[in-house]
Each structure stands twice: as structure tokens, then as C-alpha cells.
Simulated scan of single mutants.
Amino acid sequence: MATIFTKIINREIPAHIVAEDEHYIAFLDIMPLAKGHVLVVPKKEVDYIFDLDDATLSGLHLFAKKVAKAIDKTIKCTRVGVAVIGLEVPHVHVHLVPLRTMDDINFSRPKLKLSQEELAVIAETIRKGF
């Protein structure tokens, strides 16, 4: 059965996409730790990041770097934090979280609840950073 991320990739369910190419996609987390929290996902459905082939793994990080630079340019933050947890969805994904403090990337704290309109504005803002 396809993961929720594969359903986003296939446009079966909506997402606030900020970047995409032939192999990777980046979209806003709908339960973000901070405004501008993005998930970067390979289009190839693999559960565990270290099961990716070398080319896909390195490409994922290079794509994430481009997205992080766009977040840096457009979202007020000190820097962009990176996390790979890999337990929530059985499809590799990298979290890019705009940081002002270390606590901004604490996954045990309550998530933000943003409206679809707020998410759309944030996604458009990040897209302008490319």
C-alpha cells in the first residue's frame, strides 16, 4: 500500500509543495514545529534512509540543501535545522525546521495548528526563495 507521501507525490491528496524535480519533492509539514517546517522526500518509496542507494541519498541531501537555502532567505530564523527520525511514515523524509532556538526542533513539544490559508502563504513565500 502506498504511503501518504507517495499519495502526495502522485497528487492523490493535496499538499503545499515548495519544490520538486524528477526525483524529489518538498512540501510543508501540516503539523509543523515552526512556520516553514518542510519535509523533503525522495519520490522512490523506501522506508529507511540508510536503505537508499548512494545516488538517491546524496541527491536527497543536495535537494534538501536547495530547499533549506530558500527557507533561509524567506523565513525569519537563525538557521535551518535538519532531522531524520523515520518512525512516523514508512517513507524516507528529511525535516527542515526554521530555528531560532534549540527547542524549535524538539519533536516532543506541541505542534502548530495552522490554517490551509496560512500554509498556502508560507509555501508561496518559500517558493519565492528559489
Results as ranks from 00 to 15, higher is better:
P32R: 05
L62F: 12
V89I: 14
L114I: 04
T56R: 06
D47C: 06
P32C: 06
A19Q: 11
V89F: 03
I9P: 01
A34Q: 15
M1Q: 09
A2I: 03
V67A: 04
T101L: 06
Y48H: 13
G81M: 02
I122D: 07
I105E: 13
T101Y: 04
L112F: 10
L99V: 02
K43L: 03
L60M: 14
L114F: 02
V41A: 11
N10H: 14
I9S: 03
H37P: 06
K35I: 02
V18A: 12
V80H: 05
K69M: 13
E118V: 04
I9H: 06
I8E: 08
D103I: 10
I9D: 05
T101R: 12
I9K: 07
N10K: 15
F5N: 02
H16P: 00
F130S: 10
D104E: 06
L119R: 11
K35Y: 01
E22D: 14
K113R: 14
V38R: 12
K43F: 07
T56N: 08
G129Y: 08
D51A: 13
I105Y: 11
R100G: 10
E124F: 00
E88V: 08
V46H: 09
I122W: 06
A68I: 00
L28W: 07
L119I: 01
F130A: 13
I25H: 05
N106T: 06
E12S: 00
I122C: 06
K76Y: 01
D54E: 15
E20W: 09
H91C: 11
I49Y: 12
V94R: 12
A15I: 06
C77D: 02
T74V: 03
I126L: 10
T6D: 02
N106P: 01
L60C: 07
V89D: 11
P110S: 11
D72K: 13
G81A: 02
D104F: 03
K113C: 02
A34I: 03
I25N: 09
I30V: 14
L60V: 02
E117D: 14
A123Y: 03
A55I: 08
V38E: 08
V40N: 05
I85R: 11
L60A: 10
